[in-house]
Design a protein around this nucleic acid. Structure first.
Lengths: 138, 138
DNA sequence: TCAATACTTTAGAGCCGTTCTAAAGAGAGA
DNA sequence: TCTCTCTTTAGAACGGCTCTAAAGTATTGA
């Protein structure tokens, strides 16, 4: 069996982020970044990996999510205390938060117009503006 | 010793919320609602009570914070995963979130102009719009 | 006023998401 | 290939929060 190196987009992504393209990181990235943008928790991703017969420890799932976040491949969202979600959509956008069941849906940036912002105190610089539209279903 | 009933504003607040004005709830309310508006965690409040020689269990602090939130006396804020803050300012307003040390500061509602919002899907009703301006100090 | 009732508090156990540890495993460069 | 460094892992540990069930306290109505 030859050791064939594949240069898929995912491996390039990892290399660009200075992350060794290990079996685990490649598999998790493939699970997360195929198809639609999503909001995923560590546990969800771990279960998905298990279902897909990818053996990864929960610690590695956490490590990977944080490394990806730091590298700008994911964005962490905190709406509920006690559980973090990671958004595969890292472009400028906002969220609906459904109070009934706690799920999130994207809102395109141009659907929310924030036309005026205050100057941060103490010379602080704005790094991001998050708009969460909390909605109730019934 | 006569059993003297006091009708302070705090006791009225509690009665209006259908919460019996117990020693613990009165003391916690007094601690929270005196002075400036604040962003307080359960542990902070528990420590404050202890310092003020008010004996309250941590469970009661949690119960009280949630009951007050449900009654509209507090607003719960989740910016960091893993720890909840409760805001004594329940009027319409937003927040600066300082990424360096994780603290919050109020932004008056009229300093942020959200001039356009999308319609929630599935006939959901907007219950609140939270704007978090994430800033970095250096 | 007093008993009966319903609500509240509490210590401590327990839960759950997340992080830590330290030892084994695997990728990369020479 | 060897070596160095980075990565993964199981399992323990942690922190914030909630649950339990028993004791305590406010309220009601007679």
């Amino acid at each position: 069996m030859t050791t064939e190196k594949r240069y898929t987009p995912i491996i390039s992504k990892l290399r660009d982020a200075n992350l060794r393209p290990t079996r685990q990181r490649i598999a998790l990235a493939e699970l997360m970044f195929r198809g639609e943008d999503r909001h995923i928790s560590a546990e969800m991703l771990h279960k998905e990996a298990t279902t897909a017969r990818v053996s990864v420890s929960l610690a590695t799932v956490y490590n990977t999510l944080h490394q990806f976040t730091q590298a700008g491949l994911l964005r962490e969202i905190a709406v509920e205390a006690g559980r973090s979600y990671f958004d595969t959509n890292t472009s400028n956008h906002h969220h609906f938060y459904f109070e009934n069941d706690g799920h999130l849906e994207d809102v395109h940036a141009d659907e929310v117009v924030v036309s005026s912002l205050p100057t941060p105190p103490g010379g602080a610089k704005i790094s991001r503006v998050d708009v969460v539209i909390r909605v109730r279903q019934d």
